[in-house]
Design a protein around this nucleic acid. Structure first.
Lengths: 112, 112
DNA sequence: AACCATACCTCGAACTAAAAGGTATAACAA
DNA sequence: TTGTTATACCTTTTAGTTCGAGGTATGGTT
């Protein structure tokens, strides 16, 4: 019972998070809105997606968390580790590969 | 308990199938190899993905099936219906939207 | 006091894709 | 003739992701 590979396009939420955090550290609630904004409303990922991914990225060493109290509330700021930057490059490459694969398929012979 | 929307990038296998069938009618086994080829090996979808999607597209009226005996075996050829061509346009638009959304996010301020 | 926005989090249901298995014919090689 | 490989269809099982709704808590606004 060989372990099944992840679905071929499942790295996108992870990619978007890492890309945003490559600019500056941010906290979860902020990232939820930033993704929507940065993609021009094209993609909207809820908290139920973001938080688990952040935790998983922290567990696997791509992100580093820092709790920071701000006006009575506590925010958890995330920043990229060195490993995280490598992971970002990998995911970016994966994305370009499949993106251009699809592009090729869509453009072939008979386009409208 | 409202029904959950489909995942934000789930239309791709369907899109690729419809796009290939917009050129000419093809059968399932052929489509499996064609997708791999047309995407420059970037995407490889197995029969366990292709056949169910074909059946679903036929059920919902986007595809039309025609059984055709060829050299002792029987092939099921699929072709686009008018509705299928509309569906193809919609999925293409969806794809462009999210593709350029991601593009935008990846390009923003500090690219390498 | 009621309400909304912020800010964190988790869980269950729904859905998708991956992999493997199942049937059957034809063609080729040992 | 037996075995293997390729064609061609299909389903089922399993694994993984995403969605949506929920739950807690603080602070500001009406």
């Amino acid at each position: 019972m060989a372990k099944s590979n992840p679905p071929f396009m499942s790295g996108v939420p992870e990619l978007l998070l890492l890309r945003l955090l490559d600019n500056r550290e941010m906290y979860g609630y902020e990232l939820v809105r930033s993704i929507k904004e940065a993609t021009g409303e094209a993609i909207s990922l809820g908290e139920g997606v973001i938080y688990p991914v952040l935790h998983s990225l922290e567990r696997t060493g791509s992100l580093q968390a820092r709790r920071k109290p701000v006006g009575g509330r506590t925010r958890v700021y995330y920043s990229l580790t060195k490993q995280g930057r490598g992971r970002l490059r990998d995911l970016q490459d994966d994305w370009r590969r499949i993106q251009s694969g699809i592009e090729t398929a869509l453009e072939s012979p008979g386009h409208a």
